[in-house]
């Protein structure tokens, strides 16, 4: 399956992506091979508030990629229900049928799973798989509401943050932290009132920050009509050229690999600690839940148990 996926068989790639997403031993078996087959995929993170028009912009970016005769893969992330673990992955609804069945397009929907590190493990793994299979561009679409989603976007080579006219004031934008991760800002639905004021606000906020070697451009789009899509596509390519010329391309990869390393260790520790809570640490957890033991002391006791397990 692995070799077939790398030689261009879609069905095998789809199955490989499932293996990567599940994590586990099967993934650890293929992970070294993925690194050996890495080619240098350009990862574009697309994030913004719900309803900002991310999926419609994604469809427009697919159109631009196809016009430039480039293959493009999309990982569309939607949140899982924290209660049932189920999810409705609806990003394909905005995808045109023509794009959905184009040979040069590969779209994969992914649920955020809600578990700690879930997304931050699945996404980099899936990008490595797409890279190994020869996909030159991966666009990762996430809802920019939580820290982990922002982190996913930030771990891309090029992060595009989508806002709409009338989007909050300066304080809110700063609070959201989205501006810090943006390499490109998009004001989508820019036919709505207040678009120019929003562009001015964003410009002012960008100037408040520390001077950077790359000044994030602000692009106005009307994604539903395809307007501005070519400008955004150009900005993405300009950013790539900047990264390659400045050494940032390799620098971001180094950071990203270290982040993934830490996430994988943290997630493994988290799994053991959850297991302890259900077994030898059950009494401690119960007493914390009942308010008989303070969480800090309880944590210290569980940590001792964790140390014991790791020592085995």
């Amino acid at each position: 399956m692995f070799n077939a996926a790398l030689s261009g068989d879609r069905r095998s790639l789809a199955q490989l992506l499932s293996v990567v997403e599940a994590g586990g031993d099967d993934f650890e078996f293929v992970a070294p091979k993925l690194l050996a087959s890495a080619k240098g995929i350009h990862t574009i993170g697309l994030t913004g508030a719900p309803g900002a028009g991310k999926s419609t912009l994604t469809d427009a970016m697919i159109g631009e990629a196809l016009r430039a005769q480039r293959k493009i893969a999309v990982i569309a992330v939607d949140p899982s229900s924290p209660f049932t673990g189920g999810a409705i992955l609806g990003d394909r609804v905005r995808l045109s049928d023509e794009h959905a069945r184009d040979e040069s397009v590969f779209v994969r929907s992914l649920a955020s799973r809600g578990q700690l590190g879930g997304l931050s493990l699945a996404v980099p793994g899936m990008i490595s798989a797409l890279d190994a299979a020869g996909w030159p561009i991966a666009l990762v679409e996430t809802v920019g509401v939580g820290q982990s989603e922002v982190a996913i976007a930030a771990s891309a080579d090029t992060t595009v943050v989508v806002v709409n006219p009338g989007w909050g004031d300066e304080v809110q934008a700063n609070k959201a932290g989205l501006l810090e991760v943006a390499d490109i800002l998009v004001v989508n639905k820019s036919d709505r009132p207040g678009a120019d004021a929003t562009v001015r606000d964003l410009e002012r906020m960008l100037h408040l920050g520390a001077a950077r070697s790359w000044n994030p451009p602000i692009v106005k789009t009307i994604a539903a009509e395809g307007k501005g899509a070519d400008v955004l596509w150009q900005a993405i390519n300009d950013h790539r050229a900047f990264m390659e010329a400045s050494g940032e391309w390799e620098e971001r990869r180094r950071t990203r690999r270290l982040v993934e390393l830490r996430e994988r260790v943290t997630s493994a520790l988290q799994r053991i600690s959850t297991d302890i809570e259900k077994n030898e640490g059950q009494d401690i957890a119960m007493r914390v839940a009942n308010g008989e033991l303070d969480p800090a002391t309880g944590a210290a006791q569980l940590r001792a148990m964790l140390g014991k397990r790791l020592g085995d």
Partner: peptide, 8 residues
Amino acid sequence: GFEVILAG
């Protein structure tokens, strides 16, 4: 508990 992919 299922992941539902809507295709439209």
